[in-house]
Design a protein around this nucleic acid. Structure first.
Lengths: 157, 157
DNA sequence: CAGTATCCCAAGCGATACTG
DNA sequence: CAGTATCGCTTGGGATACTG
C-alpha cells in the first residue's frame, strides 16, 4: 500500500467524526437505548439507565438540541400535564447504529450465556442483524468487498 | 403502552452498553476510522486524526487490550523494524457500526454539498449502506418492523 | 414527578520532555 | 520514527439541594 486513500481528503468534514461529536458524549447512546426500548419518561429513564439525574438532563438537552429527540406534552385523564421524550425522524434513523452496536456487543462482549438483548423481525420473529447492501441491490457478506471513497463534500487535504 | 419492554430485564448485561464502554471513550472511533481507511502507523494516524500523541497512544493500547487491534512488526528493505496496527477479526466486525455511523452522519450532519466520504461496493462501484436483515432472509426497510426482546443472557430486573 | 443549579472533586487532556 | 512519563489545568461527573 502506498498512500492510504484516507490521506487524499480532509477529515474535518468526516461524517463519522461529526456523528461521534454527538454520540461520543458519555451516556448519550445509553439514553438512546432507553428511548428506543420505549422508556420515555425522565424518572424511569434515570432509574433504568443508571445515569445521574444531572447527566441525564444534560444528555436529553443535547439530543433535543440536535433534533434527535423531542419533548412531547401529554396529559393522562385526571393527571396534570407531563412530558415525554420521543425520537424524531433523525433520531429514528439511528436505529441501524444501535442494532450494529448490539450485534457487535452481543457477538464479542457477551458471556457464554449469550447477549441480554436481541433484535427480532416483528413479522416472523427471526433474529435480525445489520448487513451491508449496495444501491444495486447486492447484499454484501464479505466485508472486504466494500471500501471508502471521497464523497461530494470532500475537501482536499 | 403500559410497562416498556425494557424494564423486564436488567441492563447490566446490555450489549449496547458493553460496546459503548469501549467505543464511547473519546477518540476511539476516530482511531478506528483511520485504521479502517488504511492508516496504520502511529505518526500518520496522529497527524491525520488530530488526536494528541498521548491520547492516540492510550486509545491504541485500549484497542489492543480489547483485542480489536493488534500490533504487527514488519521491516521494509533497508529499514529498521517498525510496527503497524491492524484490525483483528473482532475489530473488523465493527465495520457495520462504522458504516452505520457514516450513513447517519452523511445523511443528517453534512452540509448541502453532501458527505465527505462514501462507502462503495468494490465490485460494482455503487454506494453502499447498512440495512436490517433477519435470519429468514427478509430485508427490512420499515425500521418499525423490528423490536428488541430479551436474549439468552437476560437477567430479571 | 420532572427537572435545574451549585459545589466539590477526580479523571483525563494537551504540552512538554524524555527514551528506544 | 514511535512512542511513554510527567504535570498543571480544565472539563465534566456525583451528591445535594432547590423549584415548578
Amino acid at each position: 500500500m502506498s498512500t492510504p486513500a484516507a490521506l487524499t481528503w480532509s477529515t474535518t468534514n468526516c461524517p463519522v467524526g461529526r456523528a461521534m461529536d454527538i454520540l461520543g458524549e458519555s451516556g448519550t447512546v445509553i439514553v438512546l437505548r432507553e428511548i428506543f426500548n420505549g422508556v420515555r419518561r425522565f424518572d424511569l429513564m434515570q432509574r433504568h439507565s443508571g445515569l445521574s439525574r444531572a447527566v441525564l438532563s444534560h444528555r436529553l438537552a443535547l439530543l433535543v438540541e440536535h433534533g434527535i429527540v423531542h419533548r412531547v406534552a401529554y396529559r393522562d385523564p385526571g393527571e396534570r400535564e407531563r412530558h415525554e421524550y420521543r425520537l424524531t425522524t433523525r433520531g429514528f434513523d439511528l436505529q441501524p447504529v444501535m442494532v450494529a452496536l448490539a450485534d457487535w456487543g452481543g457477538k464479542h462482549l457477551s458471556g457464554p450465556e449469550g447477549p441480554a438483548v436481541e433484535v427480532e423481525h416483528r413479522d416472523c420473529g427471526a433474529r435480525t442483524h445489520v448487513a451491508l447492501v449496495c444501491e444495486e441491490g447486492h447484499v454484501i457478506d464479505r466485508l472486504r468487498d466494500v471500501r471508502t471513497r471521497p464523497g461530494p463534500g470532500a475537501m482536499p487535504t
